[in-house]
């Protein structure tokens, strides 16, 4: 069936011009990976709150020792100032030797944060490079898998205890102890990711162009891993802080004259029955730090997945 054409004068029509250059512009879409990641991340008020909490805790713990005149190690010989309840001039009270717990809490947070940060940077740095090579160079796979099996099958606690006995207890001993086993887990994670993207067609294209291995890893592999690595770092920090507390708790942590959350918890537990606040304050701080890092890390991992960018 044919519909009759209405009577329309031809001068009403004007031929549409086709501009080839303008047609090329139509494929354009504004999308920035990092901007979308941040937008998705900041959508949740919980993430904003916890991120703010982390920022406040970190800045406060680094600024407090610079501005406060209180010495966290000053022992008072006057027994009246020992084991004072919170309030009464000392916000968190004092411990069994009259030391101000408020000051010690901030100094301790600073030590623990620093420890967690250094371990996270080392773990992620070593793990990233080792994992990229492990996944990319086929010949390394056997060797690295064996190293992984060995390191992963030594019980963590036994290994930590052994190392702190061999080396003098101290800040760097704990860094070494946690890093020797920590990097391999991240390396394996990175390796699995690399295996997934190694045989993608754009990597074959790069090989056809003769791209050397180091540039392949730098340009073709690592950019895909950045968000994962940030998340791994965010999760390593609370893990390291927790490990330090655990070592302090069993008496193998930092020397007692170093103020750290581990030492605070260790001393606090001795007096817990009589003066519970000496344990609860450092533990609450520890919980606040670790939980916010864990949740922020996981939220960021979700936000960094492009599938969640609506």
């Amino acid at each position: 069936m044919k519909r009759p054409m209405p009577d329309l004068a031809p001068e009403l029509f004007r031929p549409a011009l086709f501009d080839e250059a303008a047609a090329e512009l139509t494929g354009y879409a504004h999308y920035s990976y990092w901007r979308s990641t941040m937008r998705t991340f900041l959508k949740s008020p919980v993430s904003i709150f916890l991120l703010a909490l982390i920022v406040v805790l970190v800045t406060a713990s680094f600024i407090y020792p610079l501005v406060s005149p209180t010495d966290p190690n000053r022992v008072d010989l006057d027994t009246a100032t020992w084991n004072m309840e919170p309030g009464s001039g000392h916000a968190f009270g004092t411990d069994g030797l009259g030391r101000d717990l408020w000051a010690r809490a901030w100094y301790g947070t600073r030590t623990s944060m620093l420890l967690g940060l250094i371990i996270a940077i080392l773990d992620v740095g070593i793990g990233m490079i080792a994992g990229a090579l492990w996944g990319y160079v086929k010949r390394l796979d056997r060797v690295m898998t064996e190293i992984y099996n060995v390191l992963n099958n030594i019980p963590q606690t036994v290994f930590l205890i052994l190392l702190t006995y061999i080396m003098r207890p101290g800040f760097w001993t704990i860094v070494v102890a946690l890093c020797t086993t920590g990097w391999i887990g991240i390396a394996r994670f990175v390796r699995n990711k690399v295996l997934m993207i190694r045989d993608a067609e754009y990597n074959i294209a790069s090989r056809c162009l003769g791209t050397p291995l180091h540039r392949m890893i730098l340009k073709n592999v690592l950019p895909y891993l950045v968000s994962i690595l940030i998340m791994e770092a965010a999760l390593t920090i609370p893990y390291s802080i927790g490990s330090e507390v655990f070592l302090g708790f069993i008496g193998l942590g930092l020397p007692l004259d170093t103020v750290s959350l581990g030492n605070l918890v260790n001393l606090g537990k001795n007096n817990f029955m009589l003066y519970p606040y000496q344990l609860t304050w450092p533990t609450l701080l520890l919980a606040a730090i670790t939980i916010s890092f864990y949740i922020v890390g996981n939220r960021f991992a979700d936000a960094s997945d492009p599938r969640n960018h609506v």
């Binding site: 990976y33 993608a200 067609e201 754009y202 074959i204 294209a205 790069s206 056809c208 340009k219 073709n220 950019p223 895909y224």
Partner: peptide, 14 residues
């Protein structure tokens, strides 16, 4: 070489 899948043959992050 020219590749089959234009969606997979370009590095998305470059």
């Amino acid at each position: 070489m020219i590749f089959q899948d234009p969606m997979a043959s370009l590095n998305e992050r470059a």
